[in-house]
Design a protein around this nucleic acid. Sequence first.
DNA 1: TCTGGGGTCCTAGGACCC
DNA 2: TCTGGGGTCCTAGGACCC
Length: 433
Amino acid sequence: MEKRDTLIALVDCNSFYASCEKLFRPDLKNRPVIVLSNNDSCIVAASSEAKKAGLKRGLPLFQQKQLIESCGAAVFSSNYTLYADISRRVIMALGELAPSIETYSIDEAFIEVPFRLGADPHKIASYGREVREKVTRYTGIPVSVGISSTKTLAKAASRLAKKNNKGEMEHLYIIDNENRIPSLKAVAVEDVWGIGMRYSLFLRERGIHTAYAFSLLDPWWVKKKMTLTGYRTLLELNGEKQVNPEDPSSGKKAIISSRQFGRPVTSLEELLEAVSDYATGASEKLYRQSSSAGAVTVVLETDRHREGEKYYSAGRSFLFPSPVSYTPDIIKASCALMKEIYSSGYNYKRAGVILTDIASTDKMQKELFEEINESGERKKLQQAVSEINFRYGRNTLSSLSRGTGTLKWQMRRQRLSPRYTTDINDFPVVSAG
DNA sequence: TCTGGGGTCCTAGGACCC
DNA sequence: TCTGGGGTCCTAGGACCC
């Protein structure tokens, strides 16, 4: 058996959100399907039929009304509860196929190709097919598989895999030493993982149009112009591993809760309601990962796309004397920050709460002179509220500062699909006989 | 009318210290 | 008149990802 380094496969769900919606709606099988961002404002996922019709990720909904109608696309608001559940099933299916998995995002995972396959291209290709077929069989979600020696090359391979839509190599692509150069010539520089819009414009201005041309640049020049990140990308394209696997035990370093409002908001009262709501959401996330936050930041901005109106954006942070996880503390600090950055006379479009300096609560230092009793009571209350909200739905119990009336600023989600898999009231009903 | 939300990493530059 | 330099820590902002 020929010796080789570990090979990495990137498994990428095709049009993930759209595929999830199709899963429970067989009538949509060959129809264009699109999924919208929060507030139903722009397209975040499009099925292959929708892409063919010209509907792309990132386009604002209001500009696509005609096209949507003419191609008969089904339109959904995003249903993250559903997608998160399907994602978990995909990861479980991969668990049976790979020695190690790194979940990269809701719809992608890097897996290690089993070492026993050696370097035999036929065996590796047949493993790729097995992964693709099993995931689809277990979950109903179609995936693409890209295999190579580094993560950046595996990403490039998966991009090429999406273009293969026939035969044995359907939705599968392997980059090895033999085909690396022609493969990278077929990948546009802006499609390289780690090279975004700014840098691809910069590179194209200098005559660099493909991943291959980029891979030939002087690494030190790239480091100077594109920071360490660009340098690592270059080395990865040349087959040198630079991007290390994440430590799976580490939790999030920041928790962000922010949203655009359903309509412009001007009053401080409504902003305080919104910020309390976001602070509650962020605190619950913090609680679920058993962590505490050392600081909270509140941000506020007007609509940057609105012509003829002055753009205003502000943010301010508060460092807690010692890390906190107690929701009311976080709400209180967030509201105080909002009062500081609020300026009247603007139409606000968005606000957010960001928790940072996050550390595991068990390892946390006890605050000096902390009153143990009070801390115990607080902990019990927090736990009870969190459990009730988990069981009976978000906001069953919540802080009064969130407001109890109709929350007029809340985002629009008018085309939400049912929670097929996570809410018993929404389970699909099957009749027999 | 109408352009998402949630993350990570890197760097420059200021503050502060000796 | 002369007006250091190196180290560390922190933060804001930029770039990227899905």
